[in-house]
Protein backbone atom coordinates (compact mmCIF):
# COMPACT_ATOMS: atom_id res chain seq x y z
CA UNK A 1 0.00 0.00 0.00
CA UNK A 2 1.18 3.45 -0.70
CA UNK A 3 1.20 5.96 2.02
CA UNK A 4 1.44 9.68 1.83
CA UNK A 5 3.76 10.98 4.47
CA UNK A 6 4.32 14.43 5.78
CA UNK A 7 7.51 16.24 4.76
CA UNK A 8 10.66 16.67 6.82
CA UNK A 9 12.59 13.73 8.08
CA UNK A 10 10.15 11.06 7.11
CA UNK A 11 12.01 9.70 4.19
CA UNK A 12 13.70 6.49 3.28
CA UNK A 13 11.97 4.17 5.71
CA UNK A 14 13.26 1.13 3.84
CA UNK A 15 16.75 2.36 3.48
CA UNK A 16 17.22 3.12 7.12
CA UNK A 17 19.70 0.30 7.41
CA UNK A 18 22.12 1.84 4.92
CA UNK A 19 23.46 5.35 4.91
CA UNK A 20 21.51 7.51 2.48
CA UNK A 21 23.31 8.27 -0.75
CA UNK A 22 22.14 11.87 -0.87
CA UNK A 23 20.72 13.77 2.04
CA UNK A 24 19.39 17.26 2.32
CA UNK A 25 19.25 18.47 5.90
CA UNK A 26 17.18 21.56 6.63
CA UNK A 27 18.40 23.05 3.41
CA UNK A 28 17.55 26.68 2.78
CA UNK A 29 18.39 28.47 -0.43
CA UNK A 30 17.88 32.18 -0.80
CA UNK A 31 18.74 34.34 -3.77
CA UNK A 32 19.53 38.00 -3.17
CA UNK A 33 17.16 40.29 -5.04
CA UNK A 34 16.88 44.07 -5.16
CA UNK A 35 14.04 44.09 -2.65
CA UNK A 36 15.38 41.62 -0.11
CA UNK A 37 16.10 37.92 -0.34
CA UNK A 38 14.02 35.46 -2.30
CA UNK A 39 13.59 32.09 -0.62
CA UNK A 40 13.77 29.44 -3.31
CA UNK A 41 13.90 26.52 -0.86
CA UNK A 42 12.74 26.60 2.72
CA UNK A 43 14.06 24.00 5.16
CA UNK A 44 14.02 21.02 2.86
CA UNK A 45 14.99 17.68 4.32
CA UNK A 46 15.13 14.59 2.16
CA UNK A 47 17.11 11.38 2.14
CA UNK A 48 17.65 9.50 -1.08
CA UNK A 49 18.69 5.95 -0.32
CA UNK A 50 21.57 4.21 -2.01
CA UNK A 51 20.31 2.85 -5.34
CA UNK A 52 16.93 4.37 -4.84
CA UNK A 53 14.92 5.94 -7.64
CA UNK A 54 13.25 9.14 -6.47
CA UNK A 55 11.25 11.49 -8.66
CA UNK A 56 10.39 15.09 -7.85
CA UNK A 57 7.29 16.86 -9.11
CA UNK A 58 5.93 20.28 -8.34
CA UNK A 59 4.76 23.53 -9.87
CA UNK A 60 7.13 25.59 -11.97
CA UNK A 61 9.48 27.69 -9.88
CA UNK A 62 9.16 25.60 -6.73
CA UNK A 63 12.90 24.98 -6.62
CA UNK A 64 13.25 21.55 -8.22
CA UNK A 65 16.23 22.50 -10.35
CA UNK A 66 17.79 24.33 -7.43
CA UNK A 67 17.52 21.20 -5.31
CA UNK A 68 19.12 19.10 -8.03
CA UNK A 69 21.90 21.61 -8.63
CA UNK A 70 22.76 21.50 -4.96
CA UNK A 71 23.15 17.72 -5.10
CA UNK A 72 25.28 18.23 -8.21
CA UNK A 73 27.50 20.66 -6.31
CA UNK A 74 26.84 23.55 -8.67
CA UNK A 75 24.97 25.59 -6.08
CA UNK A 76 25.68 25.75 -2.38
CA UNK A 77 22.95 25.87 0.28
CA UNK A 78 22.38 29.14 2.15
CA UNK A 79 21.78 27.15 5.31
CA UNK A 80 21.61 23.48 6.19
CA UNK A 81 23.63 20.67 4.66
CA UNK A 82 23.74 18.67 1.49
CA UNK A 83 25.54 15.36 1.94
CA UNK A 84 26.55 12.71 -0.53
CA UNK A 85 27.79 9.47 1.01
CA UNK A 86 27.71 11.26 4.34
CA UNK A 87 30.16 13.97 3.30
CA UNK A 88 29.17 17.57 2.56
CA UNK A 89 29.09 18.35 -1.14
CA UNK A 90 31.86 20.78 -2.02
CA UNK A 91 31.58 20.78 -5.80
CA UNK A 92 30.63 18.76 -8.84
CA UNK A 93 32.20 15.45 -9.72
CA UNK A 94 31.93 12.80 -12.42
CA UNK A 95 30.44 10.28 -9.98
CA UNK A 96 27.31 12.44 -10.04
CA UNK A 97 26.06 12.72 -13.59
CA UNK A 98 23.75 15.58 -14.43
CA UNK A 99 21.31 15.95 -17.27
CA UNK A 100 20.37 19.59 -17.53
CA UNK A 101 16.95 20.96 -18.29
CA UNK A 102 18.51 23.07 -21.10
CA UNK A 103 20.52 20.21 -22.71
CA UNK A 104 23.77 22.21 -22.38
CA UNK A 105 25.43 20.48 -25.33
CA UNK A 106 28.74 21.88 -26.57
CA UNK A 107 27.66 23.33 -29.92
CA UNK A 108 31.11 23.05 -31.50
CA UNK A 109 31.32 19.30 -30.89
CA UNK A 110 29.48 16.56 -32.75
CA UNK A 111 27.19 14.15 -30.93
CA UNK A 112 30.13 11.80 -30.49
CA UNK A 113 32.38 14.67 -29.37
CA UNK A 114 29.86 15.62 -26.73
CA UNK A 115 29.44 12.07 -25.51
CA UNK A 116 33.20 11.56 -25.38
CA UNK A 117 33.85 14.81 -23.51
CA UNK A 118 33.57 13.23 -20.07
CA UNK A 119 35.27 10.01 -21.16
CA UNK A 120 38.32 11.92 -22.32
CA UNK A 121 38.81 13.16 -18.78
CA UNK A 122 39.19 9.60 -17.53
CA UNK A 123 42.21 7.37 -17.89
CA UNK A 124 40.35 4.91 -20.09
CA UNK A 125 42.20 3.70 -23.18
CA UNK A 126 41.00 5.12 -26.48
CA UNK A 127 39.25 1.95 -27.73
CA UNK A 128 37.32 1.64 -24.50
CA UNK A 129 36.28 5.28 -24.75
CA UNK A 130 35.02 4.79 -28.27
CA UNK A 131 33.22 1.61 -27.29
CA UNK A 132 31.45 3.30 -24.40
CA UNK A 133 30.56 6.36 -26.41
CA UNK A 134 29.15 4.23 -29.22
CA UNK A 135 27.18 2.20 -26.72
CA UNK A 136 25.68 5.29 -25.07
CA UNK A 137 24.85 6.80 -28.45
CA UNK A 138 23.18 3.60 -29.53
CA UNK A 139 21.21 3.42 -26.31
CA UNK A 140 19.52 6.72 -27.10
CA UNK A 141 19.12 5.87 -30.78
CA UNK A 142 21.45 8.48 -32.23
CA UNK A 143 23.88 6.17 -34.02
CA UNK A 144 23.01 7.63 -37.40
CA UNK A 145 23.66 11.13 -36.10
CA UNK A 146 26.91 10.46 -34.26
CA UNK A 147 28.80 12.90 -36.47
CA UNK A 148 26.15 15.60 -36.57
CA UNK A 149 26.53 18.97 -34.91
CA UNK A 150 23.94 19.93 -32.29
CA UNK A 151 22.57 22.73 -34.44
CA UNK A 152 21.30 20.15 -36.90
CA UNK A 153 19.45 18.12 -34.24
CA UNK A 154 15.84 18.45 -33.14
CA UNK A 155 15.03 19.31 -29.53
CA UNK A 156 14.35 15.70 -28.63
CA UNK A 157 17.57 14.55 -30.29
CA UNK A 158 19.56 17.15 -28.39
CA UNK A 159 18.04 15.88 -25.20
CA UNK A 160 18.92 12.30 -26.08
CA UNK A 161 22.48 13.39 -26.79
CA UNK A 162 22.65 15.01 -23.36
CA UNK A 163 21.39 11.78 -21.83
CA UNK A 164 24.03 9.77 -23.69
CA UNK A 165 26.72 12.15 -22.49
CA UNK A 166 25.75 11.57 -18.88
CA UNK A 167 25.31 7.78 -19.28
CA UNK A 168 28.69 7.40 -20.97
CA UNK A 169 30.75 8.18 -17.87
CA UNK A 170 28.71 5.67 -15.90
CA UNK A 171 28.08 7.75 -12.75
CA UNK A 172 26.92 6.26 -9.44
CA UNK A 173 24.30 8.95 -9.09
CA UNK A 174 22.18 10.30 -11.91
CA UNK A 175 20.65 13.73 -11.40
CA UNK A 176 18.13 14.27 -14.16
CA UNK A 177 16.31 17.55 -14.65
CA UNK A 178 13.26 16.93 -16.83
CA UNK A 179 15.38 14.80 -19.16
CA UNK A 180 12.46 13.53 -21.22
CA UNK A 181 10.61 16.83 -21.35
CA UNK A 182 11.15 17.55 -25.05
CA UNK A 183 10.49 14.05 -26.32
CA UNK A 184 7.53 12.64 -28.19
CA UNK A 185 5.35 10.17 -26.31
CA UNK A 186 6.84 7.09 -27.95
CA UNK A 187 10.52 7.98 -27.48
CA UNK A 188 9.69 9.07 -23.98
CA UNK A 189 8.23 5.69 -23.05
CA UNK A 190 11.14 3.91 -24.70
CA UNK A 191 13.68 5.94 -22.78
CA UNK A 192 11.75 5.48 -19.54
CA UNK A 193 11.87 1.72 -19.98
CA UNK A 194 15.53 1.87 -20.96
CA UNK A 195 16.33 3.95 -17.93
CA UNK A 196 14.47 1.54 -15.67
CA UNK A 197 16.15 -1.50 -17.15
CA UNK A 198 19.62 0.02 -16.80
CA UNK A 199 18.67 1.03 -13.30
CA UNK A 200 17.49 -2.49 -12.34
CA UNK A 201 20.66 -3.93 -13.79
CA UNK A 202 23.19 -1.48 -12.46
CA UNK A 203 21.29 0.14 -9.64
CA UNK A 204 22.44 3.69 -9.71
CA UNK A 205 20.89 6.23 -7.40
CA UNK A 206 18.56 8.41 -9.41
CA UNK A 207 17.06 11.77 -8.54
CA UNK A 208 14.72 12.62 -11.37
CA UNK A 209 12.74 15.80 -11.88
CA UNK A 210 9.67 15.80 -14.07
CA UNK A 211 6.43 17.65 -14.49
CA UNK A 212 4.73 14.55 -15.82
CA UNK A 213 2.87 12.82 -12.96
CA UNK A 214 2.56 9.54 -14.89
CA UNK A 215 6.27 9.47 -15.48
CA UNK A 216 6.99 10.29 -11.84
CA UNK A 217 4.89 7.39 -10.60
CA UNK A 218 6.01 4.93 -13.27
CA UNK A 219 9.68 5.36 -12.55
CA UNK A 220 10.03 5.96 -8.86
CA UNK A 221 9.79 4.18 -5.60
CA UNK A 222 9.02 7.50 -3.97
CA UNK A 223 7.59 10.64 -5.48
CA UNK A 224 8.51 13.89 -3.79
CA UNK A 225 5.80 16.49 -4.28
CA UNK A 226 7.00 20.03 -3.83
CA UNK A 227 5.12 23.24 -3.22
CA UNK A 228 6.02 26.75 -4.26
CA UNK A 229 6.49 30.09 -2.54
CA UNK A 230 8.49 29.25 -0.64
CA UNK A 231 9.80 26.07 -2.29
CA UNK A 232 9.39 23.18 0.09
CA UNK A 233 8.48 19.52 0.23
CA UNK A 234 4.75 19.22 0.34
CA UNK A 235 4.43 15.50 0.56
CA UNK A 236 6.21 12.29 -0.24
CA UNK A 237 4.19 9.54 -1.89
CA UNK A 238 5.47 5.99 -1.71
CA UNK A 239 4.91 3.95 -4.84
CA UNK A 240 4.40 0.38 -3.72
CA UNK A 241 4.55 -1.16 -7.15
CA UNK A 242 6.99 -3.93 -8.00
CA UNK A 243 9.88 -3.60 -10.42
CA UNK A 244 10.33 -4.35 -13.25
CA UNK A 245 7.49 -2.11 -14.23
CA UNK A 246 5.59 -2.93 -17.34
CA UNK A 247 3.00 -1.64 -19.74
CA UNK A 248 0.25 -3.54 -17.86
CA UNK A 249 1.25 -1.87 -14.66
CA UNK A 250 0.74 1.51 -16.27
CA UNK A 251 -2.87 0.50 -16.96
CA UNK A 252 -3.53 -1.09 -13.60
CA UNK A 253 -6.02 0.42 -11.13
CA UNK A 254 -3.33 0.49 -8.48
CA UNK A 255 -1.17 2.72 -10.70
CA UNK A 256 -4.15 4.97 -11.41
CA UNK A 257 -4.83 5.34 -7.73
CA UNK A 258 -1.31 6.42 -6.90
CA UNK A 259 -1.17 8.71 -9.89
CA UNK A 260 -4.39 10.40 -8.77
CA UNK A 261 -2.99 10.79 -5.31
CA UNK A 262 0.13 12.51 -6.64
CA UNK A 263 -1.90 14.55 -9.08
CA UNK A 264 -4.14 15.79 -6.30
CA UNK A 265 -1.28 16.82 -4.10
CA UNK A 266 0.47 18.64 -6.95
CA UNK A 267 -2.47 20.52 -8.34
CA UNK A 268 -4.60 21.08 -5.28
CA UNK A 269 -2.07 22.53 -2.95
CA UNK A 270 -3.37 24.76 -0.21
CA UNK A 271 -2.60 28.30 -1.39
CA UNK A 272 -4.30 28.55 -4.76
CA UNK A 273 -2.38 30.18 -7.59
CA UNK A 274 0.34 27.64 -7.95
CA UNK A 275 -1.81 25.34 -10.05
CA UNK A 276 -1.11 24.78 -13.72
Amino acid sequence: MSTGTSPNRSSGARDRTARPKISFRDVVKTFPLKDGDFTALDRVSLDVGDREFVTVVGPSGCGKSTLLNMAAGLVGPSAGQVLVDGAPVTGPGPERGVIFQQYALFPWLTVRGNVEFGLKLTSLPAEERTRRADHAIELVGLTDFADALPKTLSGGMKQRCAIARAYAVDPEVLLMDEPFGALDALTRVQLQDQLLSTWTRERRTVLFITHDVDEAVYLARRVVVMAARPGRIHRIVEVDLPYPRTEELRLSPEFARIRNEVWTSVYHQQPAGSAA
Binding site: G91, V98, F117, V169
Partner: peptide, 18 residues
Protein backbone atom coordinates in the same frame (compact mmCIF):
# COMPACT_ATOMS: atom_id res chain seq x y z
CA UNK B 1 30.17 32.06 -22.29
CA UNK B 2 26.97 30.24 -21.41
CA UNK B 3 27.07 29.34 -17.72
CA UNK B 4 25.36 26.00 -18.29
CA UNK B 5 28.12 24.91 -20.68
CA UNK B 6 30.68 25.50 -17.97
CA UNK B 7 28.49 23.64 -15.51
CA UNK B 8 28.08 20.77 -17.96
CA UNK B 9 31.85 20.45 -18.20
CA UNK B 10 32.28 20.70 -14.44
CA UNK B 11 29.83 17.91 -13.69
CA UNK B 12 31.69 15.70 -16.14
CA UNK B 13 34.74 16.22 -13.96
CA UNK B 14 36.61 18.82 -16.01
CA UNK B 15 39.21 20.78 -14.03
CA UNK B 16 39.53 24.55 -14.59
CA UNK B 17 42.32 24.11 -17.13
CA UNK B 18 40.21 21.82 -19.31
Amino acid sequence: VDRTLIDAARVLGAPDRV
